[in-house]
Amino acid sequence: MFFKGCPLRCQWCHNPESWKPLPEPGFRPSRCVRCGRCIEICPQNAVSLAETGPVTDPQKCTVCGECVTACAAGAREIIGRRTTAAEVMAEARKDVVFYDQSGGGVTFSGGEPLMQPEFLLALLETCRTEGIRTAVDTTCYATPEVIQRVAPVADLFLCDIKHMNRERHEEYTGVGNGRILENIAALARAAKEVIIRVPIVPGFNDDRANLEATARFVQGLKTVRRIDILPYNRGGLEKAGRLTGRIDLMQAQTPSDSTMNGIAEFLRGYGFEVKIGG
């Protein structure tokens, strides 16, 4: 389950469609048949024809969805929708047979699920009542109060550490890492289980000094045994291109398998269980 809206602006983000905490129009150029119906139908006259195909003016667009209905080719979509806890639970329950078999459960991710704490808590509580395992995949950028409330309710927290250096962190994500690291420490004390996740973004955080600092920090948490390292991928650039609002992401190289294996071995040296991907 992906929550839309995120307080961070990571330059390598692979889910840029979940930055804005509101529904927004999306467009897949590869599907467009250039029929022009979206231009005709838009009540705000927000869509115009450019050389590359129809372009939506985000200032004018009210996300009414008329163009989506009109687009028979399925090139237009509204990314994100308002929903209710009941609707989300209905979706979650559909996969119970798979959770039962694999020991898995629902993962609340995003975006940042902690940006909508009341909704998240309602879902977590219901899952707990129904015996569905839950995981929260989070940047940990939230108030300590939210962290305290959520910590006991979920079964697992997947917490990102993107960089140990405050300035680097702020430069590449738009926020400092102080609050994040404090919150991770708090979760490590209060939550049932925490797994640390480190995106490996070449040129940003893959240097030994940062990895060592990360490992030492996680060691200091005492209760955390597992670190997952996630290779940077360029899917974000792809997805950003489908958004109406312009998002400029950095271009990095996808780390090779041997780079990833090297980092995994390095972290294992600190006694962690390390998984690549996940």
Binding site: R31, G235, E238, G277
Partner: peptide, 15 residues
């Protein structure tokens, strides 16, 4: 693609 799936033909050539 990575943690998610997508229609192959919708992806850019590099990817």
């Amino acid at each position: 693609v990575a943690g998610y799936s997508d229609y192959f033909v919708d992806l850019g050539k590099d990817l």
